[in-house]
Design a protein around this nucleic acid. Sequence first.
DNA 1: CCAAGAACATGAGTTATTGTCATGATGAAC
DNA 2: GTTCATCATGACAATAACTCATGTTCTTGG
Lengths: 304, 304
Amino acid sequence: MLELRHLRTLIALRDAGSLVEAAERVHLTQSALSHQIKDLEERLGSPLFLRKTRPVEFTRAGTRLLALAEQVLPQVRMAERDLARLAGNEQGRLHMAIECHSCFQWLMPTIDHFRDHWPEVEIDIPGGHHFDPLPALAREHLDLVITADPQPLAGVHYEPLFRYEGLLAVARQHRLAGRPFVTPVDLTEETLITYPVEHARLDVFTQFLDPAGVKPREVRTAELTIMMMQLVASGRGVCALPNWALTEYLERDYVKAVSLGAEGVWSTLFAAIREETRELPWMEDFLRTARETSFAVLEGIKPA
Amino acid sequence: MLELRHLRTLIALRDAGSLVEAAERVHLTQSALSHQIKDLEERLGSPLFLRKTRPVEFTRAGTRLLALAEQVLPQVRMAERDLARLAGNEQGRLHMAIECHSCFQWLMPTIDHFRDHWPEVEIDIPGGHHFDPLPALAREHLDLVITADPQPLAGVHYEPLFRYEGLLAVARQHRLAGRPFVTPVDLTEETLITYPVEHARLDVFTQFLDPAGVKPREVRTAELTIMMMQLVASGRGVCALPNWALTEYLERDYVKAVSLGAEGVWSTLFAAIREETRELPWMEDFLRTARETSFAVLEGIKPA
DNA sequence: CCAAGAACATGAGTTATTGTCATGATGAAC
DNA sequence: GTTCATCATGACAATAACTCATGTTCTTGG
């Protein structure tokens, strides 16, 4: 019998383009999905997609089921929201701080969407504070903080949103451009441009250079991503940024990007919230929406 | 995670009014439904219906889910039909015979509905034949026969549709009216009116009188249900008919009905089809539609 | 053309879910 | 208060779903 599970899988498969990645998205193994879909296909009596193309190509039957999924799943989500609301806990406050530069790209659509569904939750990004946001979260001045480096703090829970790769942006004609990846020593002769934050919060150092005991020739800072890009493009340095922050510059062929090490440097972005707000229906919904939106908006990220 | 299974259960529950009967309809035990719904309620954080009323009363959360089910399940069924059609086997023939007098009540809506969804299947009830329909089925002159007494026949499969109770219709002022049930000997002094078919095909005899070795004082026949009702109402005899064939007369208080024996005499109505047509998608759909329609239209019947 | 990598399939075995059976509790009807 | 029907519950069983390990196929780059 057809179940929602199958529809969710198919949507993931379409968005991902391959079984392997779809499996990641629904937090199952590739094998599980293979079995699941095979079962379904047998019961329906026809294949749902062609596996030998990349991305996978859906058959007519597959397309029909996808259409069903597109129709049905939003209705189900809406009902679930209503139920959550009926279950109580409706009004609340969601004041946020964003530690991660350039997160607005996916955060704004998330907030818009959320506002429509939870009008009774006061959502805001209070500006102007320059205190440390995580203690402010614990002290209930804030309700959610987007951060890439979780610090153990009583009563604070870190909910992983997604993983992203830190890439090294270099000028188009740079000697490192075109390499499959760079090694730490490759940076000994470079000027590294970073955001003006503590050394310990920069993954290039903590995960890449420091373990190898390497220092770049020079380190300078810039406030905004666009400024960094200008410096990089004009050959005055290189900088490490999340892959998704770079995509727009890469598409315009403004700079080139290289992985840091053979495996790449991967970090996880977290939403820090207070333990007691963790199970509030609207909080769960916000996090779910945030994840959905970021996957829809950003490229090259992976489920946590 | 919410699944279609849950929605199907809730619809059954609403239609049935109690867990026990809903369980019959979805072919599970009452216990299974109790567990299933309890799980769901726990995950949602609120009860879905009140058990202490008859029929069960849905809470706001329950009503919301029912609305979802009403919205989603038809969409799913439609998709399934499309898929079945895509899977091939689209055109076919469905010529039927109805052995059971007064089945048209639920058969007509079924046919109408079916015609809309399977325009490529030629559906008909050829009139005029007076040969025995079951051999005609085997010989492929017919494709489906509605009958209440299946006979072993090579290549013919009997698909149970629903069970119904054979009731004894008596005049309003009859001495047996108002009894909880009648015993075989109660009929020794009665005139029994039957359809003009073989003795062996009448459940009153095979399941009730014959086992007790009892014969009614007189047996006479009538062609049409309405004629039987007139004879019964005027006190010129009693007759045994399916409960659902009687409802309209009972509602108008034209006659009274009594069960045959403490347990009642229950029979099953079957759709006889040829083995090889059993898995055709449109045949499966026709049978499903037939069952659905009869449950919606008839009262007092039970799943087979 | 071969080696290496990536992606999907498959079979066996495990786990988790979902159901059944037997029984108990509760409430309504007589 | 007894009886009857319905629903709940706990222990167990069946089944469905998933993972692991491995095999197959196709693509890519030397």
